[in-house]
Write a protein that binds this DNA or RNA. Sequence first.
DNA 1: TCCCGTTGTCATAGT
DNA 2: CAACTATGACAACGG
Length: 603
Amino acid sequence: MMEIELPKLNPSQQDMDMIDILWKQDIDLGAGREVFDFSYRQKEHELQKQRDLEEEKRRQMLLEREKALLAQLQLDEETGEFVPRSVPSGQPQSASDTPSEVSQNVGFTVDGDAMSFDECMELLAQTFPLVESSETASTCLGTATPPTTNSQLIMAPEQPPLAQTPLLPATQKSWPDLDQAWMELLSIPELQQCLNMQMPEITEPSDYLSTNSAPEDPSYGLFMPGLTDTVVTQPEVCPPEFMGNYEVSFPGAGPANLLSQMSLKAPDTVVSGNTDEFCEMFYPDMLNTAKVSETPHPCNTVSGVCQVTETPDCSPVKPLDMRELSSGDPFEMSKGEMATEFPDSDSGLSLDASPNMSSPEKSTFEDGSLGFSDSDMDDTDSGPGSESDYSEMFSLPFETTSPSGTTTNTPRSRRQDRNGKHHKTEPAEASGHSKPPFSKDKAKRRSESRLSRDEQRAKTLRIPFTVSMIINLPVDDFNELMSKHQLNEPQLALVRDIRRRGKNKVAAQNCRKRKMENIVGLEFDLDSLKEERERLQREKTEHSSSLRQMKQQLNSLYLEVFGMLRDEQGRPYSPADYSLQQTSDGNVFLVPRVKKTLIKSDG
DNA sequence: TCCCGTTGTCATAGT
DNA sequence: CAACTATGACAACGG
């Protein structure tokens, strides 16, 4: 039932188109065009393997050298230094990072428990016979680099999928290790560099890009007029073929390949982010399948991928799934990515946050007038089918994050498969076929239903675009699109309403987010000001105390000085009659108080 | 049933 | 002036 027909209509061109689409959408992820090109990836893969091999060899050599070094040294109890135990007939040292005096005495021929590099390689080759010979070296990392290496994760077109199954349990158990190893792998600068270098060498990206006018927004190209023209006039320009090619090319490894390549091309995303999130982004279906499947493993998402990758027979990964996971709605996906990575853009809130999986009960009943079933929808939508494929491609967002979306994807693809190419699947429909496994965020359901309402309306009026297209297209392209389709007045009104609502929804979300941020900021300011006030009050208290003390000291000093003054007869001055005053120039005068008393007496 | 938080939508002012 | 954004207000919804 998961089989789909793969119409072979100008496959190469379609491949290129799809590559363009996927590539553009994944630019946001840091993925390059080569991610989608088999030849790229092959060469990339080769190069990476070489790099891995070199790296591992180098590490292994260092390890061996250290081992041998320690084996050949003994601690000099007098000096506390390690000194050569004997002079072995070792091989000449090639590394420069070993102390010269030591390297002269140490070789690779090992004594004791140390093994030679070749022995190690051989042992590892025997231990992991499934790994490519060139990769056995990398396994020398031991636990740090589990045997499941990039050859498996990235793509293994030449390897039968079953050949990897023996590793499956181990890899699933050791996924954290594998993740770590992957992160280490991906963090190797040379690796990334070399991956990036491959692109210009193999093909000029402009060759691909030339078909589109250069979009400013990476995802913009998805909505380029040319592309939409293609959509309209060429209904079969489609992902299924493209994906089909991939599936044919890499039996049982298509989506995983893509994922791995993506992860390679966008190491930051993988490394910095939670792998679960990452995989949920790309493999909602698979994850869901993995979770639903009876396999009891605590399936973190990576393991979900692993399952899909390594058990292609039962895998839900079919071209359509692939299309979805390769971002369901490419535009939305890319936007979502941008939103998450660059919060400034759209404040991390985009429409894709709004959902496209609508809860069936709500989506179908909330709009009473629109309460037809999904099958009805399918029937009503069987129309020209020209946009259906792209409508599917541009279908609403959030399948990537919503659990219900993930659960619904499989049935959705199934139905799409059944319907062949004439499947304009609305998100609402997609979710309508299976209930959310658990009560997820009500907000999401609400948003789903809301969007699905617009979707339903659009469908009712047979609007040939998806809501996401309507909302997200730049105004010029939107107008162009409108002009290309002869829409009647209600259709135009609905489309404008959908666009307005969609944009306003995002605006409202941003507004609320800002409001909350402002509140948080103000609370922070309030706390700071409270602290400041307390501090100032403490200072004031201290200063008052200090001032009082100084006044007392001054008074004492004054009395002391005044008491030392004597008149011509040697008698002390009376403090009642005289006072000491200091002028601005620093001179001190004895000023009689007589005047005051006189004034007082006069008064 | 009421309360409350969240979200979508509308109206309107501003950019 | 059109398109978009920001925001207050309101309603619907669900816990």
